[in-house]
Amino acid sequence: MDRVDQILVSGVAFGKNSLGLILRPYETYRRIVDRGSVVELLPIGLLLAGYFALASLVKEDTLRPFLLTRQFMVLVGTAGVSFFLVSATLWTVGTIVGGKGTFSRFVLAWGYTMLPTIAWFLMTSILYLILPPPRTTRTLGVAFSMLYLVISATILFWKILLGYLSLRFGLRLDLGKIVVVAIVAAPIFALYSFAMYKLGVFKVPFL
């Protein structure tokens, strides 16, 4: 199969897996880890680049070609570093507690957990344009706030679910060891997120 065929097949697999993650996450993750290809990270990378292009357009008020803005390059670079830092940390801690599997499969599995992250950030960016903050304490303000928080919490639980499944299938860990990995990795991610906040790159962790 040549490169173009591989990319096309991975694109179709990405679409199928993305739908599966919404409807049947458990089986879809089993399929991703068993039969997925790292080329499927390409559509995820393109989605991320698309989101960062939109975010740069919203954040920067200039007419420069936005792909060349400092904002876009910083976001793309930092997101790439974050992704590999998180994957490597979870992989390292996971293998120390007895996890088994290959790093490439685990990176693919973790890559699909970026879908809820992109969904939330995209929703927030679009709402920033349509209904910019601050929110008022009037009835409509409180109602919208509650709706926004319900959607955000749902996406967060979806992310946690996908994260759990990537550790379960990517590293063959059981619940107890997944909890241990989460407890060990959480302070590292918290420190990294704080550093990103102080540098003004990501105010909300882009993990």
């Binding site: 975010a55 919203v58 950030f121 927030t124 960016s125 709402l127 920033y128 910019p132 903050p133 601050p134 929110r135 008022t136 304490t137 303000g141 409180v142 919208f144 706030s145 509650m146 926004y148 928080l149 319900v150 955000s152 919490a153 105010k203 909300v204």
Partner: peptide, 24 residues
């Protein structure tokens, strides 16, 4: 969870949402 948060924070929930909306 959100209803519980509203019962604890009241209308200060809008401040949390303002912070989150600026978080992207």
């Amino acid at each position: 969870g959100v209803i519980g948060l509203y019962m604890i924070l009241g209308s200060a929930i809008t401040f949390l949402v303002t912070l989150l909306q600026r978080g992207f």
